[in-house]
Design a protein around this nucleic acid. Structure first.
Lengths: 110, 110
DNA sequence: ATTATACATAACCGAATGGTTATATAATAT
DNA sequence: ATATTATATAACCATTCGGTTATGTATAAT
């Protein structure tokens, strides 16, 4: 009932992944470029890239021995909008609830 | 560099927790009320509530043997804004990048 | 006083996470 | 042909996660 097609929540759950996305948002990067930006091993980065790819947030372009990673902007944006919508709704509802509470302050009976 | 004060990403990572938040957004609920809404055990819900509380997204009011849970609207909203800001920036940057790419289509040399 | 209800907590469990090291493979450079 | 570089993959490990059952404790109801 609450799952987005692409699980943006999973993608964003880890800080390394968020930083990778942030990095890629500045432009295409090879895997080794990305690895250089972190203090963790190449296989560790590779795994996180795999998860981001699984969830559809990034895209790989192969060229020679290089892999160029970039944001899958479309997917990302759609998922993002959905997430913002969901959470936004919750916040709206709390306002509604507060409004209801204020309005019915005196008459506790319904 | 990328961590919010309250870890909204962690809070939202699990679908049960998101559903709890959604439920609470409609108004205060006792723990047993919440338990009834799910197919999982009371201790399981209790654990998720503990995490949401840890991250500051909900609040408990004790009354008799009941625990009334409600959204900590303030924290939630601040974290939400921050998250939207962070991700929004990423998306803006990809636009920027795209713009740069489009503008420099013909001249690959900078 | 006894029973029922709401919640808390402990012990346990399997699976997923997020990293590691070691090693293989593929492409490039020398 | 050999060495180097980029990436992939396997095996391993500790921790976290998200649930379970069992049981304890506090409050309320009978």
């Amino acid at each position: 009932m609450f799952r987005t097609t692409k699980n943006i929540y999973r993608a964003l759950a880890d800080s390394t992944r968020r930083e990778i996305l942030n990095l890629l948002s500045k432009g295409e990067q090879t895997q080794s470029d990305i690895v250089k930006e972190f203090n963790i091993s190449q296989p560790a980065i590779n795994k996180q890239l795999k998860i981001l790819k699984e969830e559809g947030f990034i895209h790989v372009r192969k060229s020679g021995r290089y892999r160029y990673y970039s944001l899958e902007r479309e997917t990302f944006e759609v998922a993002y909008r959905q997430m913002v919508g969901e959470i936004g709704t919750m916040l709206d509802q709390t306002l509604m609830d507060l409004k209801h509470y204020v309005e019915n302050k005196e008459e506790d009976d319904d």
